[in-house]
């Protein structure tokens, strides 16, 4: 699964990338690619990823992200503030898998 993480400059989601990778290794998930970028770069990267997880502090960009994600047929979700603050790789990886599952139903 390929996950794109997005925040204002790709810095704070960068903290999350390692945590989620570690969690993925713990669960023995193969083929897990996680990448963090800034919201200005999302157009460049979105095609290569299955789903997009967005940091809560840029929820004012939702309209833009919604339009882009639906035009590329990708699922997206905002990360819960509490999970984000604790850099909780476990919970956020769960969220990614749930999002992926929901996408496949449609």
């Amino acid at each position: 699964m390929n996950i794109l993480l997005v925040c204002a400059s790709g810095m704070s989601t960068g903290l999350l990338v390692n945590k989620m990778r570690m969690e993925g290794e713990k669960r023995n998930i193969l083929n897990l690619t996680i990448f963090a970028c800034s919201v200005d770069e999302i157009e460049k990267y979105i095609s290569h990823y299955d789903i997009v997880l967005v940091a809560p502090q840029i929820r004012y960009k939702e309209k833009y992200i919604y339009a882009l994600a639906s035009s590329k047929d990708k699922g997206y979700a905002f990360i819960d503030g509490g999970h984000y603050g604790r850099v909780d790789g476990n919970k956020i990886l769960d969220q990614a898998f749930n999002l992926m599952k929901n996408e496949q139903h449609f």
């Binding site: 704070s12 502090q57 503030g81 603050g85 850099v87």
Partner: peptide, 26 residues
């Protein structure tokens, strides 16, 4: 305490989302 451990290194590079969302300040 756990938050302190997590936020101090990013803090030196001026990244503080763990604090704003983890403490939370928000």
């Amino acid at each position: 305490k756990a938050l302190g451990k997590m936020s101090i290194l990013p803090g030196f590079f001026n990244i503080n989302e763990p604090i704003t969302f983890g403490m939370p300040i928000v």
